[in-house]
Amino acid sequence: MSADRREDTTERQRGRPAAAGRGATEGISADRREDTTERQRGRPAAAGRGATTGTSRSPGTTHLEVVARVAPELIERLGRVLRHRGALVERLTFEACASEAVLHADVRCAAPVEVIVAQLERLPDVHSVRAS
């Protein structure tokens, strides 16, 4: 985890976005071990949990965890709501299994985060949204 943190800081300093995918992947693999039981119950691993703990989050960002029914366009739907309602995504991980998907995002938003959460919760496929 601390290795991830160092990596990300360097990339950030180069003016590039943190390598969300890479950090996330490493995070997920850690989670995968932990989450075997959840997976066996038919839920995807909480992908971003690993991603978040595994990497630094810049101050002023909010972490969102969205659990939703799987649909091919799910990422687009969630991403569109985030963009349109004024949240800037700094980091994103997503994992889907047969029935459920989990999206983790670090976002920076001008609007109060409750507004973004409420908008995400309106999406018919979304089961739950948590902000932290």
Partner: peptide, 9 residues
């Protein structure tokens, strides 16, 4: 039964 979003419904 589909466990859909309560807000939407």
């Amino acid at each position: 039964t589909r466990g859909a979003s309560p807000a939407a419904y």
